[in-house]
Write a protein that binds this DNA or RNA. Structure first.
Length: 562
RNA sequence: UGGGGCGUCGACAAGCGGUAAGUCACCAGCCUUUGGAGCUGGCAUUCCCAGGUUCGAAUCCUGGCGCCCCAGCCA
């Protein structure tokens, strides 16, 4: 595969700057140790890809390590289906965690001990308030909260109660373990946050061993500490939680990673929240998590995106603290740039129109040589059958051509890619509908592709497929899933779903060699775009997904003329 | 009337007191047997606003304004 000569050198964003400074001052003894910590409650999307590329990328760049850790502290929402898909997606993106696969649930015993330590220090207590009461005691954004009546229980009583919580003596929701911090803090996270809650639920890894589960805030910072993470990179909304993490770590006197927050990715014309994506799947508004219209990693993979293009995208969008929405056109640019170099060009006629070349001998078949990829000579050439009857694209012929239309029209000449120049001499129409059924042309034998006898210039070049040799294929054309840059604009993202986001074409004519392409192989359909073979393809019934169309200046001209 | 962040081109994003990088998008031209790709050029006298400090401010100071996040026993 050719190297992209335009590969940009990595820009120094603020996190790189922090790491380089830390390396210079030897803050972590030269170590860079990050982690990607997903909760296994959904499929990964392009926003996670940004985080994955950041965490694994930084580690690789600075000779460090990056762990994969599942933050699996809520058994009622998590599932092994998700842990499997997450591992597959991270691997596919091109990253490896070697033997550093961890689960927060591996630390449950250790975490329990930490909680006991807090109780012994008088820094945590068992609270009997109901969820509603806790909310009332919490106060509001502008008013301080009130202390729980259970806040001053003795260490002995707390120890006893907490142990009995673990032993399953109390029902769900009846009690919690809370940190004793400050009910008047302006930061609500510091108003005696919950550390443990009772959930008599089966965990996907620990089974029924536990009926109390630690909360995310407690678990996350301590898991990072246990793994001796140097840079705990997370998104902006956790900035408010940092004081709480600092408090836990300091009270316990344990290893203290440095947390750095960055802005999560938003992409135009799509939604990124797990809740909304789950809704699209559950309500069958799309065909599953890997529907090629989804911004999920598996959706993008099935759509034909490459790991390289996603990594390039992650690099190009940068890393900062400002809320932003990246134009989906940048993502599309990244796949085009990658696929332009690696995808073989092939000919596929999506909406066939028959062309008969009147002066071409009946029964004759020529094998024409075609270059596979002009951007990469190493891709070689292939033979293409040419005969008297061929298919061209319906939109490549117009009986009454508009201005600047360089394609086929009565009396007009075009080049057939890799073949001859032909001239339109007549049309056959359907008696009833008046639609053009067939176009008649004559060819000039002197204009065979690659033979220098002729230097005639024609404005247009069309792709084509020999009618007798063509194979049939199904092609799925995808458009944006939503009609608005911000689907959430007026609070109802489903209202802005694009009814035309999928168009299925079932009678496409493809060049013969394409019929046995392998799933996820990438091609450029000449003059159309980049396509990949859908994994649902079966022998004799091949399906192609359009990854992205080619830039289409004619479409722009056409639009402007109107 | 709480706490935490953030405001640089249509969209991302550099810049860290010495006179506004780069990318996408867009526009124009060249080139082309893909109306693709490639190439060339254009695209912020100005950095949310107002004052101030300075020979000099996007960068420092003061005061405004705007946007985002937080009141799960979710993560």
């Amino acid at each position: 595969m050719p190297e992209n000569p335009n590969k940009p050198s990595a820009p120094v964003h603020f996190i790189r700057a922090i790491i380089e400074e830390d390396l210079k001052t030897n803050k972590w003894g030269g170590r860079v140790h990050t982690r990607f910590p997903p909760e296994p409650n959904g499929y990964l999307h392009i926003g996670h890809a940004k985080s994955i590329c950041l965490n694994f990328g930084l580690a690789a760049e600075y000779n460090g390590l990056c762990n994969l850790r599942f933050d699996d502290t809520n058994p009622t929402k998590e599932d092994v289906e998700y842990v499997d898909s997450i591992m597959e997606d991270v691997r596919w993106l091109g990253f490896s965690w070697d033997d550093r696969l961890y689960y927060a649930s591996d630390y449950f015993e250790q975490l329990y001990d930490y909680a006991v330590q807090l109780i012994k220090k008088g820094k945590a207590y068992v609270c009997d308030l109901s969820p509603e009461e806790v909310r009332q005691y919490r106060g509001t954004l502008t008013e301080p909260g009130q202390n729980s009546p259970y806040r001053d229980r003795s260490v002995e009583e707390n120890l006893d109660l907490f142990e009995r919580m673990r032993n399953g003596e109390f029902p769900d929701g009846s009690r919690t373990l809370r940190a004793k911090i400050d009910m008047a803090s302006g930061n609500l996270n510091m108003r005696d946050p919950t550390i443990y809650r009772i959930k008599h639920a089966t965990h996907h890894r620990t089974g029924d061993k536990w009926c109390i589960y630690p909360m995310y805030d407690f678990t996350h910072c301590l898991s990072d500490s246990i793994e001796r993470i140097t840079h705990s990179i997370c998104t902006l909304e956790f900035e408010d939680h940092r004081p709480l993490y600092d408090w836990f770590l300091d009270q316990l006197g344990v290893y203290h990673p440095q947390q750095i927050e960055f802005a999560r990715l938003n992409l135009s014309y799509t939604v990124m929240s797990k809740r909304k994506l789950l809704q699209l799947v559950q309500e069958k508004l799309v065909n599953g998590w890997d529907d090629p219209r989804m911004p999920t990693i598996c959706g993008l993979r099935r759509r034909g995106y490459t790991p390289e293009s996603i990594r390039a995208f992650a690099e190009k969008i940068g890393v900062a603290k400002r809320d932003s929405v990246v134009d989906v056109a940048l993502l599309e640019h990244c796949v085009r740039e990658d696929l332009n170099l690696r995808a073989n060009r092939v000919m596929a006629v999506l909406r066939p129109l028959k062309v008969v070349i009147d002066n071409y001998p009946e029964g004759k078949v020529e094998e024409l040589e075609a270059v596979n990829n002009p951007e990469y000579p190493g891709a070689g050439t292939r033979k293409l059958p040419f005969a008297r009857e061929i298919y061209i694209e319906q939109e490549d012929f117009k009986e009454f051509p508009p201005k600047k239309y360089f394609r086929l029209a009565p009396g007009q000449e075009v080049r057939l890619k890799h073949a001859y120049i032909i001239k339109c001499v007549g049309v056959v129409k359907d008696d009833k509908t008046g639609a053009v059924k067939e176009v008649h042309c004559v060819y000039d034998p002197q204009t065979k592709s690659g033979e220098s006898a002729d230097s005639r210039k024609v404005k247009g070049t069309l792709h084509w497929v020999s009618a007798a040799h063509a194979k049939t294929a199904e092609v799925r054309l995808y458009d944006k899933l939503f009609t608005k840059p911000d689907p959430d604009e007026d609070g109802d993202f489903k209202a802005s779903l694009n009814p035309n986001s999928l168009e299925i074409l079932t009678s496409c004519a493809i060049e013969p060699g394409l019929a046995d392409a392998k799933p996820l192989e990438h091609f450029q359909f000449l003059r159309h775009g980049y396509f990949t073979v859908d994994p649902d393809s079966r022998p004799g019934n091949i399906i192609f997904n359009r990854t992205v169309s080619l830039r289409d200046t004619w479409a722009k001209v056409e639009k402007k003329e109107n």
